[in-house]
Structures are given as C-alpha cells and as structure tokens.
C-alpha cells in the first residue's frame, strides 16, 4: 500500500493499521482461509465502514483487531505499536449486546472503569454522563431484561464509550434490530460521533448503513476476504435519514451494490 502524506490524510495521525493480515482456521484438508492480505488504515476521529458478503470474514477481522482471536499472518498496529491480546484501548460492541444480566444499566456502564480500579464516585459520574449521551437517563437502575433490543444496544455503546477507548470496534451492532429502531440507532451513533470525535470501525452487510455512517467504506471480497475497494463518502450536510435519498448517496450505494453483486455472482460461478 502506498504511504499517505500528512496532507493527504488531512493531517490526522493514523490510529489503526492492519497490514497483510491473514487468517486460516484449522489445519490440512479441513482448513478454511477466512482472510487473505487484508490492509486497512484508520485515522484519528475517522468513521470507517467495512461491508462485505456474509461469511467473508468480517467478524474474524474485527475479532483479530479486538484481540479476541490471533491472526495467522500479518500485523495489527494501534498508534504504531503491535497489539497483543484484548484490551480496553479497543472497545467492542457486538451484535448480541453481551450485557451482564445481573448488573443494572448503571453498573454495566461502570464495568470497564471498575476493572481499571477507578474509585466508585468517579465511576458513577462518568457512567451517568455516558448513559445521558445514549439517551437512557432515568433507566440507570433497570436490569437488562427490562429493556428492548435498541435500549440494550445503547447500554452496550455507553459501556464501551465510558472506557474512553482509542478506537470503537462495532460488529453489525444494529443487525438484530427492526428497521425503524435501526435508523434511530444510526442517527444516535452519528450524533455521538459528532460529540465525542471517537474513532470508529464499523462492520455491516447493510449497504445503506455503510454509506450513511461512513467517512470511508472498505468493500470486502467474498471468502477468503480481502479488500476489494475503498470508497470515500462525502455527503453534504449532517448525516441523517434524509441523506438516504441524496444523489451522491445513491451513486455510492450503486457502486457498492454492483461490486457485491459481482462478488456473489462470481461465488455462484465458482460452485
């Protein structure tokens, strides 16, 4: 990959770098190559999307970045240093929420701070701030089982943000939500990003979601997954559900659709 100059990347530092990443599951005849030579770069405060057909290795990729799985080749650099294992510097939000059902909303959001050994009063006020940010004030003492899917995902987002990670990794976080709730959550996330300037890597198989939220979209090929194209998204005005009908939006959406269509077409030909 060619090196970007300071000017080209808007003067912002590269936060996360993925270099020639490969992942093979299993050995011998049974082995599955999930990723091959994946290269990505995410700069500070960028909102980067990854779209790809299902099964192309998106979850595998984000799990490696998050330190939950080990790559077979290549490296992941955070602020120039190779990562080792999972850590609070890379916060993750999963499709399945993964809240702790025995903890209240407040305690769930405090969890990471408690792990760091931050004293209770500080934890409480920090958690309150992020609960407000995701629009859940008043639900501090509710248990996860009392919340809807969208609300659970708000808690998960607040819980991760409270840790103030270097980068927020999201794996199809709104995939399990109904269409209306998903749009609300997308706007909420765009808003949070504007307020907090968090660097975000977001995985989806929903093209609308990718174009609506991303500054940049990586399109992945079918398995073994690698980067097929990178598209910059520039839309006028603030991102909201209104952006979904802008001509620029539709142009980029069409481009991605064509690529993914071709991928699935080729996949069908392979068989």
């Amino acid at each position: 990959m060619k090196k970007l100059t300071e000017e080209e990347n808007g003067g912002r530092a590269v936060r996360l770098q993925v270099r020639d990443l490969g992942k093979v599951f299993g050995e011998g005849d049974q082995s599955v190559t999930a990723l091959r030579d994946v290269n990505l770069e995410i700069r500070e405060s960028e909102f980067v999307m990854i779209v790809g057909p299902s099964g192309c290795g998106k979850t595998t990729l984000i799990n490696i970045i998050g330190g939950l799985e080990k790559q077979t080749s290549g490296e992941v650099l955070l602020d120039g240093k190779p990562i080792s294992g999972a850590g609070a510097d890379r916060g993750m939000v999963f499709q399945g929420y993964s809240l702790f059902p025995w903890l209240t909303v407040q305690k769930n959001v405090e969890f990471g701070l408690k792990m760091k050994g931050i004293p209770a009063p500080h934890r409480e006020s920090a958690a309150k701030k992020y609960i407000r940010l995701v629009g859940l004030d008043g639900f501090e003492n509710a248990l996860p089982k009392q919340l809807s899917g969208g609300m659970k995902q708000r808690v998960a987002i607040a819980r991760t943000l409270a840790n103030e990670p270097e980068i927020l990794l999201m794996d199809e976080p709104f995939g399990a939500l109904d269409a209306q709730t998903r749009v609300v959550m997308q706007e909420l996330l765009a808003n949070i990003r504007r307020k907090t300037n968090t660097t975000i890597l977001f995985i989806t198989h929903d093209i609308d979601e990718a174009v609506l939220l991303g500054d940049r979209v990586y399109v992945m090929s079918r398995r073994p997954g690698s980067v097929r194209a990178v598209l910059d998204v520039e839309l006028p005005g603030e991102r909201s559900h209104n952006s979904l009908v802008l001509p620029e939006f539709l142009r980029i959406k069409k481009q991605i659709m064509d690529m993914l269509w071709q991928e699935s077409n080729d996949a069908a030909m392979d068989r």
């Binding site: 330190g67 890379r90 993750m92 999963f94 993964s98 809240l99 702790f100 969890f111 990471g112 990794l169």
Partner: peptide, 29 residues
C-alpha cells in the same frame, strides 16, 4: 457461560482473575 459475555469483559479491560470473579461466577451462579 455465554462466551460473548466473557469476550465483552475482555475488551472492557478485565484481567483473568477479574473475569472469573466478575463475570463467570455471577453468570454461572
């Protein structure tokens, strides 16, 4: 115990012993 919950704890910075104490034990209780 749901592996996703353990993964969430890891990415929230929980160390090995903390995962036992704060996640696995209460989840299994």
């Amino acid at each position: 115990v749901d592996a996703n919950m353990i993964n969430a704890a890891k990415t929230l910075g929980a160390k090995r012993f903390q995962i036992y104490k704060e996640v696995i034990f209460p989840a299994a209780l």
